[in-house]
Structures are given as structure tokens and as C-alpha cells.
């Protein structure tokens, strides 16, 4: 009986195992393989050594990613908190509005920002009517970061919001009861208890921000190459799979390190913030 059911379980799991092997493990293997070989397939460390030429891009990617993540958090947390305190109808409507842009194509949304930010774009046109500007906004670092924030903000709001709505109301009352004013309630109870949501929000914004390649091309005008753009170019234009693979590998390691550092600060909890 025991044997049969475990066989059955294995049978049911087999498609997923095959999928994982084919689309997760195998690509990883190829990334590692390419990273440590040359065009002829011989082992080499040249690709890794070549990375020193890209230090600036790595630093920029991580800096932009961090800035975007921090700003997302600063916008998302108060928003999610206020939302979680609102009436049921307000909550439903706002969540719908947050999700709505996600139903539209990412590329189209980024293109729209180009139209908005251009020197002769909509924003400058409106400002011009008011006698201000024009401001040069497109093709700046700020525009790239704005694009990241705009695209990834929902991924920060949703996990924080969902953990805040589940927060036991009596915990807040208990804190008030023990003498906390509103500020202390938030500082000493609400924020610590919502850390799992914050952590998953940070993860879900930081990782795609660091590795994005499209936003920087369209809103940065090519002047703010990020690591994602560089990797894309190696595969699409330079056909240097080996260098592209080593860049990807290092990016992956860097993200893992960043995540590990962050989790060290918040690991004392059982987590459970990964929702959506």
C-alpha cells in the first residue's frame, strides 16, 4: 500500500520534475558551461576576467535597482497601510486599479512614458502652457528609475497590503491599551509584524529592477546601459554567448548575495509574506 501510493505520487510528480529539469536545471547548466568556456568549447576563465570591464555597469544596475526599490517601498508602505485601514469597497477598487496596468503590455506602458517624458512630450506641453519648463526628462537616469518604479510598484504594494490586512486588529488595540500612541503602534507593532511582506516586496522589485533591459533602452536613450542591456547585446548582437553567460552568472550571484543579506535581518520570523 505504502509502496503503491508513493509510486503513484512519483508518477504524478514526474511531469513537473521533467519540466524543472528541462527548463530550470538544464539552462542553468548551460549558463555555467558557457561562462567557463571559449567559443571553441575549451575551458577558460577569460570571460570572468573580462567582467572587470563592466564594473561600472554592474554598479549602475545595482544602484538604480536599490534606488527604485527604496522609493517603491517609501511609496508602497504608507499606501498599503492606509488602504488596509479603508472600507471594503475602497480596498477592492484600489486593488483593481493597481492591477489594471499589469494587464497591459509592459512595452506599451514603457513607450507611453517616452511620449510623456519627451522634450516635446505631454508633460512639457502642459508645463509650457503654465509657463514653466521645458524640462529635459527623457534619456536621464531619473527617467530610467521612474520607469522601474512605475512598472514594479504593484509588486511592492500587493505583498505588503496582503499582510497588513491579515494583521490581527486586537494586536493594535493591545498596543494602544499599553500606552502606545498611533506613531508607536505603527513603529513597534505594525511595521515589525509586516516585515515578511516588506521582504517579499523588496525581492519582487529589486530583482527585476536590477536585471531589466528594456526600460533603460527606451527611457535612458542608451546612455544608461544596465547589466540586462549588456547581456542582451552579447546574445543578440555580439553573439558572444560565453561573455553573456558569465555576465548572467555574476548577476545571479550578486542578486543572491543581496537577498541573503536582506534575509539575515528579517530571518527571525516564520515568514509567509509571499502572496499574490
Amino acid at each position: 500500500m505504502q509502496q503503491r501510493s508513493s509510486l503513484k505520487a512519483r508518477l504524478i510528480a514526474s511531469p513537473y520534475v521533467a519540466w524543472s529539469a528541462l527548463f530550470i536545471v538544464a539552462p542553468m547548466f548551460f549558463v555555467v558551461y558557457y561562462a567557463f568556456t571559449d567559443a571553441a568549447g575549451a575551458f577558460t576563465l577569460a570571460n570572468i576576467k573580462a567582467l572587470s570591464n563592466y564594473t561600472e555597469i554592474f554598479v549602475r544596475s545595482i544602484t538604480f535597482g536599490l534606488i527604485a526599490t527604496v522609493i517603491c517601498l517609501l511609496i508602497a508602505y504608507p499606501f498599503a497601510y492606509i488602504l488596509s485601514q479603508s472600507g471594503a469597497n475602497v480596498q477592492r477598487t484600489m486593488i483593481l486599479l493597481i492591477m489594471l496596468p499589469m494587464w497591459m503590455n509592459f512595452l506599451i506602458r514603457t513607450y507611453s512614458w517616452m511620449a510623456l517624458l519627451q522634450d516635446t512630450g505631454l508633460i512639457n506641453a502642459i508645463l509650457g502652457k503654465l509657463g514653466i519648463g521645458p524640462f529635459h526628462m527623457i534619456n536621464t537616469g531619473g527617467a530610467v528609475i521612474l520607469g522601474m518604479i512605475y512598472n514594479f510598484l504593484p509588486y511592492m504594494i500587493l505583498p505588503i497590503y496582503s499582510i497588513l490586512t491579515k494583521l490581527d486588529r486586537s494586536l493594535i488595540e493591545a498596543a494602544e491599551d499599553l500606552g502606545s500612541n498611533r506613531f508607536n503602534v505603527i513603529k513597534k507593532v505594525v511595521i515589525p509584524l509586516s516585515m515578511p511582506g516588506v521582504v517579499s516586496g523588496i525581492t519582487m522589485v529589486f530583482v527585476p529592477s536590477v536585471s531589466t533591459f528594456y526600460i533603460s533602452q527606451k527611457l535612458g536613450g542608451g546612455a544608461f546601459d544596465l547589466i540586462g542591456d549588456t547581456i542582451e547585446r552579447q546574445f543578440q548582437q555580439a553573439y558572444n554567448y560565453n561573455l553573456g553567460a558569465s555576465l548572467s552568472l555574476v548577476l545571479m550571484v550578486l542578486i543572491l548575495v543581496c537577498m541573503a543579506v536582506m534575509h539575515r535581518f528579517t530571518d527571525n520570523d516564520e515568514g509567509g509574506g509571499m502572496v499574490i
Binding site: 490581527d168 486586537s170 494586536l171 493591545a174 494602544e176 491599551d177 509584524l193 527571525n268 520570523d269
Partner: peptide, 21 residues
Amino acid sequence: VPPHKRQVNTIFQRYALFSHL
């Protein structure tokens, strides 16, 4: 007068202890 300014304290039905502390 808000709860935090009252000299009254409560034991909640399900204790409402802070699990992060």
C-alpha cells in the same frame, strides 16, 4: 480620551501577544 491615555488595561480574548517579541 483615547485608550493609550486611560489607566485601564485589557486582557484580550485571544491574548493578542506580540509574536515578534
